[in-house]
Design a binder for these strands. Sequence first.
DNA 1: CTGATGACTATAG
DNA 2: CCTATAGCCATCA
Length: 124
Amino acid sequence: MTHWKSRCQRIYSVVQAIPSGRVASYADVAALANLPRGARQVGRALRETPADLRLPWHRVLRADGRLAFAVGTEAAAEQTAQLQAEGIPCLRGRVDMARYRWQPELDELLWGPLAAAHDQSHPQ
DNA sequence: CTGATGACTATAG
DNA sequence: CCTATAGCCATCA
């Protein structure tokens, strides 16, 4: 089946999993939700997110780091504020993806269970 | 079925 | 930096 609703569930789960201080692109979220070419679907899902669900939608940006909303719009202002509130600089509607992009595997390596052993054998 | 529409993306110029 | 174009894919008139 894999209906729209279940896809939304997966999309929302992935977005919910983005750590504070990190961002992801629509394509990233789609890939992690098992929707390889579903970037547009991610956008649609976020657009239709129920209000009671408190989703960190502001951590989802375009692939090049620009906001999905035009600078000057209320949504862009809110998104910018939320990002900066968690330490992510957003200038001219843009975020440095190279620096703030969420990379689950890398995070696991650096901060996960393996990190301790890795740190011991590899200080600094 | 067809064409239009998006909180998208990659590539060119 | 920008715009233009062509893919993309679910949904809707």
